[in-house]
Amino acid sequence: MNADTNKNPIIRLFNVSKRYGAKLALKDISLDIEPGEFIFVSGPSGAGKSTLLRVLYLAEKVSEGQILIDGMNLARIPAGRLPFLRRRFGMVFQDFKLIPNRTVFENVALVLEAAGEKPAFIRKKVMHVLRTTGMEKKVNALPPTLSGGEQQRVAVARAVVGEPAIILADEPTGSLDEKSAQAVMDLLMEYHKKGTTILVASHNLHLMEISVRGRNIVLEEGKLKKTSTML
C-alpha cells in the first residue's frame, strides 16, 4: 500500500464548510488525519458524514475552507488533474455502485483500465484481489446475481485494487445483514493493517465497537462534535 510513514497528516481540513442553498451540511470543520489511521465517522442521519466524504473525493466543492490531501490543496487542482487525484482514493458505497452489465472481473478491472495498465497486469492483479476478498469463484458473475454482501465485497475489491493511499467508505454496511457487514468490516481492517488510511462513515455504532481500532469522529448537524480513540 502507498501510505506514508512520516506521520505528516495525509488529510487536513481547515475550517471546511459546505452549504446547500441556505442549509449548512458541514460547519467549520478542522481535522488532521495521519497516514494509516482508521477513522470512523459517526453521527445521526443528516449529520454530514456523507458530505464530508464527498468533499474529500471532490464529488462536491467546499463552500468555505481548504482541504489538503498529501499536501495538495484540492481547491487548486485543475479539472484535468482530478482523475489522477481520485486514483489515490478507493471508494465504497452503501449502494455498491457496480456496473450491472459488467462482470465482477470487469467491474474491478475498470480501476486499472482507467489508469492505463496493461491487460496482463490487470488480470493478475484483479484475480489476486478477488482471491483476498473471497470472490474469485464469482469472477464471471454479473452484480445483480450476487447477494448484497457479495456485491459489497466486489466493491471493496474495486476500492483496493489500485492500491490507493486512502479508502473512503460511505455506509458500507448499511444495506447488509450483520454477518455480511462484519465480513466487509474485517476486509477493511485487513487493508488498514497493511497501512491504508481508511475513513468509514456509518451510523452503526455497534459495528464500530466490535470491529474498529482507531479514531471515532462524531458529527452532529454538520459540526464536529467529538473525537475519541477506540482501543
Binding site: R86, R87, P100, L110
Partner: peptide, 16 residues
C-alpha cells in the same frame, strides 16, 4: 450514466 459516474469515481479521465 451510472457507468460514466462510476468511471469518474475510479479516476477515469474524460478521454477514457
Amino acid at each position: 450514466r451510472l457507468e460514466v459516474e462510476i468511471m469518474r469515481l475510479v479516476g477515469a479521465t474524460e478521454g477514457f
